[in-house]
């Protein structure tokens, strides 16, 4: 009996050990699954609880209230919402053009809240691209120069700059207007130069703030087609602010804002 009791006790002990091992295995599996999930989602930008308040005289306007968004690499995101909902403010925070009052913006694993102004400048130069509503080209530079100015700043040689600019301008359909000054171009052409400038240095993320606001429908479509082309063919991550529903149809996902709060 004594022997049987001892055996039973050993068997229970072994069972406990097996259970413990199994639990550890499951735990390990969970860790592996979690990291696999992260790899699949591959978040490029994450905003954590960002709040932005502007002072307009005596009045404080809360443009963003604890906004949390995650954008995956290769996604085409449209930010929508009524006027004053905080679309552009959110884009400026994500694009490091502005600094939130609180919260963090993490881009490609880097916590940008810890960067100084000049470090942010360098980060923008190497990792981000911008397309503004009114094109914002430098009027004294021709199309090619507008495109390669950021490459020059990166220290690329003149030949490298010129060939990269010519290539990207050809890709946006302006291969025959390299020497043209912005004042001699239509709005659509200027916006295409602006897109070429934003993409010339192969940024991680392209930010576009109402890029079609000053363009007619046909030209808007051309610009959006270009965005779609770069997004689909090159996997370019794009974050675009728009107020037109049909523009949003180009996007993979829409972030809707209302009164500085993400709706869905």
């Amino acid at each position: 009996m004594e022997k049987i009791r001892k055996h039973t006790k050993d068997a229970v002990k072994s069972m406990d050990e097996i259970r413990k091992q199994t639990e550890n295995t499951v735990k390990g599996m969970d860790i592996i699954r979690k990291s696999t999930d992260d790899t699949i989602t591959d978040t490029i930008i994450e905003s954590i609880d960002i709040t932005r308040t502007f002072k307009m005289g005596e009045v404080e306007v809360r443009a963003l209230r604890s906004v949390n968004v995650k954008i995956r690499r290769g996604e085409f995101i449209a930010i929508m919402g009524p006027s004053g909902s905080g679309k552009t403010t959110l884009l400026n925070q994500l694009g490091l053009l502005d600094t939130p009052n609180s919260g963090k913006v993490i881009i490609d694993g880097s916590d940008t809240s810890r960067l100084s102004d000049s470090e942010k400048g360098k980060f923008r130069l190497h990792n981000l691209g911008y397309v503004f509503q009114d094109y914002a080209l430098l009027p004294e530079l021709n199309a090619m120069e507008n495109v390669y100015i950021s490459l020059m700043m990166q220290g690329k040689s003149k030949t490298e700059c010129e060939s990269a600019a010519a290539e990207i301008l050809a890709a946006v359909g302006l291969g025959d207007r390299l020497q043209q000054l912005p004042s001699k171009m239509s709005g659509g052409q200027q916006q295409r130069v602006s897109i070429a400038r934003a993409l010339a240095h192969s940024p991680e993320v392209l930010f576009a703030d109402e890029p079609c606001a000053n363009l007619d429908s046909e030209t808007s479509k051309e610009v959006l087609d270009l965005f779609e082309k770069f997004n689909q063919e090159k996997g370019q991550t794009i974050v675009m602010v728009t107020h037109e529903e049909w523009h949003a149809e180009y996007a993979d996902r829409v972030i809707r804002l209302k009164d500085g709060i993400v709706q869905e």
Binding site: S118, F132, A136, I149, S150, M153
Partner: peptide, 14 residues
């Protein structure tokens, strides 16, 4: 002014 802003935005140092 605006040009300087754009230059700063695209990463041209101050």
């Amino acid at each position: 002014k605006r040009q300087i802003g754009v230059q700063k935005a695209i990463g041209i140092e101050q």
